[in-house]
């Protein structure tokens, strides 16, 4: 039990260091598929328990579709560096007006697709259906 606790502490330390190095990595990297796509890009990712986390269709800096927390909405992608971005969207979630805010990174580009990891949260105005999500998926650009 003690060793398991120690293992968890190591994981937390590794995560803390990773967050720091991730930002450095993202500041000096390749162009993402989203930036290079001429027509549209499609982002599909797994969420909690590897269920469908999000399916979004986008053009340039705009995206729409199913966001985490069953939010059906439209949003903007704000590029921070070539492959680090923030996203903000508004929409309809569980019978309420909601918004989604997230931060993600594109990595491992293979021709017209790259892997994408995103952390985000959904908040809703009247019923407070707030929840946080981690997404891991693929962004495909045409």
């Amino acid at each position: 039990m003690e060793s398991f606790k120690q293992l968890k502490l190591y994981i937390i330390v590794i995560c803390a260091i990773s967050i720091n190095t991730l930002t450095v990595y993202a500041e000096s990297s390749f162009n993402s598929v989203r930036k290079d796509s001429k027509v549209v890009h499609l982002f599909a990712a797994a969420g909690e328990g590897f269920s469908v986390g999000t399916v979004r269709l986008g053009r340039n800096d705009f995206e729409f579709g199913l966001y985490p927390g069953y939010l059906l909405g439209i949003g903007v992608v704000i590029g921070i560096t070539n492959n680090l971005y923030s996203t903000l969207s508004v929409g309809y979630t569980n019978g309420d007006l909601g918004c989604y805010g997230g931060l993600g990174v594109d990595f491992w580009r293979l021709w017209i697709l790259n892997f994408r990891a995103e952390i985000g949260g959904v908040g809703s105005l009247f019923r407070n259906n707030s929840s946080g999500h981690a997404l891991l998926g693929l962004d495909l650009g045409f």
């Binding site: 986390g53 805010g101 985000g120 707030s130 946080g132 981690a134 997404l135 891991l136």
Partner: peptide
Amino acid sequence: FVGIESMLGLRNLFFNIVLSYQDSTQL
């Protein structure tokens, strides 16, 4: 301003691997 802050708590290693976290999100 309006926005989101979200924290994904690392509570259980197995659940974390399958992208499930003890989250605390704020609007």
